[in-house]
Design a protein around this nucleic acid. Structure first.
Lengths: 251, 251
DNA sequence: CGTTTCGTTGAAGAGTGTCAAGGCCAGTGG
DNA sequence: CCACTGGCCTTGACACTCTTCAACGAAACG
């Protein structure tokens, strides 16, 4: 499978250069001209590696950096004081972490690596400097923040009004789409997170996640073996997301 | 719902002046110095009135303005392709509307007035101009966006892991706190939204909302009569929410 | 190789949803 | 002024989804 864990070797103090990064399409410079990207070269101060299971930062830590994922997979979560964890997002290469920290100068959620991960550190000061120096950068970065707000609206729709099967179907399709846009297979991939983490994200218990995945397997929508998922019938999943029963398809 | 054309009365003659607005504490200028606020005076281009039941904007409308609420009460909602509505927020005076529109140059949700409402129109261009002209304005506006992200994390915790009683208790406490910070009573207020809208926001059905409110009434936590709510035992409600971080409860 | 974590599955039960009937209230028109 | 209407709210009975509890198997890890 093409997206097996990759061995991460030491990252020496190499010059970090966004304009040559193959994640450009997904990352901070998205939408900027190449000329502007060149001017952003020193946006990234350095890189950091986090091993599986370790935190990138925790709620309450002082905010000073936005992180861009070069490689790896992480989860964000918030915690209520009585111990309930709510996973708020899963993150993959090219995505940004730490946007929540801007609000109060401390991060408001925990971010933990679900596999060995490498991130680019972008000091927030440099983003602010870029906002002042590059005419379009303010709007650019505000779009990034706004996009996160829009994304969360979709998640609220899911959590507030969908059934377990619909949630899982939407989740699988979303993962497939994100893998595909990064050049991986959209039909076969490995879940980096546990059933409990999927459940937390989707507002379900781990047993329900397991049961629904098994049911999908029975119905030949997917083939699932532990963390390996093969999407067989994406249209079938889409039909489930839109609340449709296959028998009702010919309305 | 009628198909009448939306009646929006412009209020162009008034000189709009943030520095004298009594909502300063809650609104766009929050955290800026008075000197900077003076420079922002022309941030607001004009005002609009929206009558109860009418939309301020709808998903898909071209984005060009951020709105600040001077007076009134509104709801935001998103709609799934099969017609399910999810209320994503209720808004009251001093709060900003339309931040989701930055992402794709179109608004991504519907915003409808739940009572007669007056808003200040802030052309997005002027916000961008302020980002260039006032050194601290970029960070200031980014904080506003980031705060919305953090708020939504709290809501996801609610939708993903709380029971009906906990959701309602958190909702009532949050409303009480918001009314209080605007100078209204924190113990007695009128719900501007229907049970169905509360339910949509909290991921519950209207009957469940009604039942839980009745139960709260029976337990002498609140007195509820249709839309009138009197909070009798706020600590009791807090106990139901079970001691979560107040920051997370800004639902 | 034992230990731990993770995943699957079953049975029973709690919590919400669904359906239905009726009451309350504001607005409307006679 | 009153009856009528339609929207909103409440409450009950019942159905159903999801959770809880529990046992076991499989994979991962030191």
């Amino acid at each position: 499978m093409s997206n097996m864990p990759t061995t991460i070797n030491a990252v020496p103090t190499l010059r970090v250069n966004c304009s040559h990064c193959n994640l450009r399409e997904h990352c901070v410079p998205l939408g900027l001209s190449l000329k502007d990207i060149d001017r952003l070269e020193d946006l990234v101060s350095s890189r950091k590696r986090i091993r599986r299971g370790e935190p990138l930062f925790r709620a309450g830590d002082k905010f000073d950096c936005i992180y861009a994922i070069r490689l790896g997979f992480l989860k964000s979560s918030v915690m209520s004081s009585d111990g309930r964890e709510q996973v708020t997002n899963f993150h993959m290469s090219g995505e940004l972490l730490g946007l929540d920290g801007i609000a109060n100068d401390v991060y408001s959620c925990d971010v933990v690596a679900l596999e060995d991960t490498e991130v680019c550190m972008i000091p927030y000061e440099r983003i602010l400097a870029a906002c002042n120096e590059i005419p379009d950068y303010s709007i650019h970065f505000q779009k990034i923040l706004s996009r996160e707000i829009v994304r969360q609206h979709g998640l609220m729709l899911l959590l507030g009004s969908m059934h377990a099967e619909e949630r899982l179907a939407a989740f699988l399709l979303s993962l497939a789409q994100r893998f595909e846009s990064r050049g991986y297979s959209r039909t076969e991939f490995v879940l980096r997170m546990t059933r409990a983490e999927i459940g937390s994200y989707l507002g379900l218990k781990l047993e329900t996640v397991s049961r629904v995945l098994s049911r999908f397997g029975h119905d030949n929508l997917i083939a699932v073996n532990q963390k390996h998922v093969h999407i067989i019938d994406a249209d079938g999943l889409r039909a489930i997301v839109s609340g449709q029963n296959p028998e009702m398809l010919q309305v």
